[in-house]
Design a protein around this nucleic acid. Sequence first.
DNA 1: GTCTATACTTTGATAGAC
DNA 2: GTCTATCAAAGTATAGAC
Lengths: 206, 206
Amino acid sequence: MATTTHFSTKDRILGAAEELFAQFGFAGTSLRQVTSRADVNIAAVNYHFGSKENLVNEVFRRRMDDMSRQRIDALKAATTQHPGELEPILAAFVEPALALAQDRHGGGAFVRVVARAYAEKNDTLRKFLSDHYGHVLREFAKAIAGCVPGLSKEELYWRLDFLAGALTYAMADFGLIKRPAGVGEKAHRERCARELIRFAAAGFKS
Amino acid sequence: MATTTHFSTKDRILGAAEELFAQFGFAGTSLRQVTSRADVNIAAVNYHFGSKENLVNEVFRRRMDDMSRQRIDALKAATTQHPGELEPILAAFVEPALALAQDRHGGGAFVRVVARAYAEKNDTLRKFLSDHYGHVLREFAKAIAGCVPGLSKEELYWRLDFLAGALTYAMADFGLIKRPAGVGEKAHRERCARELIRFAAAGFKS
DNA sequence: GTCTATACTTTGATAGAC
DNA sequence: GTCTATCAAAGTATAGAC
C-alpha cells in the first residue's frame, strides 16, 4: 500500500499462515507459529482477522478468486476457439484447479479448506463457497448445455457435481493412483487432466 | 463383555463420540462433552484410546468395516447374478456408501473422517484408509476389468479414483444439487445412485 | 485391568496501555 | 495499529484407589 516493497503486517500473516497451513494443516498450526514466522505479535491476528477461522478463509479466498478468474478466462477461450466442443470446456474447468493444487505455496492450504468445508458443519464457509463456486459453475453449466443439448438441467447439474467431486479428490491426491517415481509432477498432472476430461466427457454425453 | 446388557465404558465413549462428532464436527466437539454425555471420567478417553485423534479413527472404523463388508457381499451377488454387466458392479460400490452417508447416527461422523483425511496431513490415517479401502477397491477393479476388457490397468485405476471422488462428494452432499423439499431422503439417494452409476458406466466404457 | 481426581501445558481470544 | 498481560477452555498426562 505504498511506493516501497514493504509488506504489511496483514500480508506477512497471510503468507506465513498459507505456508504453515499447507504443511501442517489447520489443527496442526497454532497462531503462535504463524505470528512467530511472520514476526508479528500474537494479538495482531485477532486484530486484523478477528479469529483463526477467518484467517483460514482469507488465505483461501486469495487463491480461490485467482482460480475462478483463470477458469472463466479459459472457458471464454474454449467456447470461441472450439465452439460446440465439450472437451475444451472440461479442460477449462479442470486444468486451473489441478495447477493450483500442485502449487507448492498455496495448493495444500487450498485443498484443505475445501476439505474442511466438507468436514465441519460450517454453513458460513459453505455458503461462501457456493456463492463463488456457484457463479463459475453456472457459467460452465451453460456452456456444457450448449454441447450436449439433450440433457435436462437436473441431469446436467448432477453430472457437474460428479465432475467437481472427482476433481477435488484428484486435487487432494487421495486415490489409488500414485505418481510414479519416473514421472514429473507436471506430466502427472497433465495425465490426470487428460484422463478426467475423457472420463467426464463420456459421462456427460451418455 | 458379559451376559448382561451393560455397555462398557469404551462402548459408551464410542457411542457418545459418534453422535457428537456427527452433529458438531471434530473441532466442535470437546472430549469433556464426550465424557460428560457418556458419563465417564475425562481421563477414560486417554486410557482407552490414547488420544482424541485415535478416538476419531475408532469411531470411523466401526462404520467403515461394516460398509466394506456390504460392498463385498453386494459385489459377489452382482457378479453371480449379472455376469459381465458393469452397472450392477458399480451399484454394489455406490449404494452401501450412500446408505451409510445418510444414516442419522453414523453418517455424519463417517463422512467427516474421510474429509479430514483429505484435509490433514495425517499419514497414519491415510495409510489406514488405503489398507482397507485398497483391498475393497482392488476387488472391484478386478470385477470391472472383466466387463471392460480393453482397459489398461492404469486407466482402470484412474477411473476408479474418479468414481470414488464423485461418490465421496455426493456423500458429503456438497454440490449444487440439493434435495428438493418434496422428495424424501431415500428417493433422493436412489436418484443420486442411478445418476452416478450411469455417469461412471459411460466413463468406464469410453 | 479399570477408572477417577487432579494437575500440567498449550491454545485462541481479549482488555487496556501506549 | 501494536504491544503486554491475562484469561478461559482445551487436550493431555500422572498418581493412586479399587
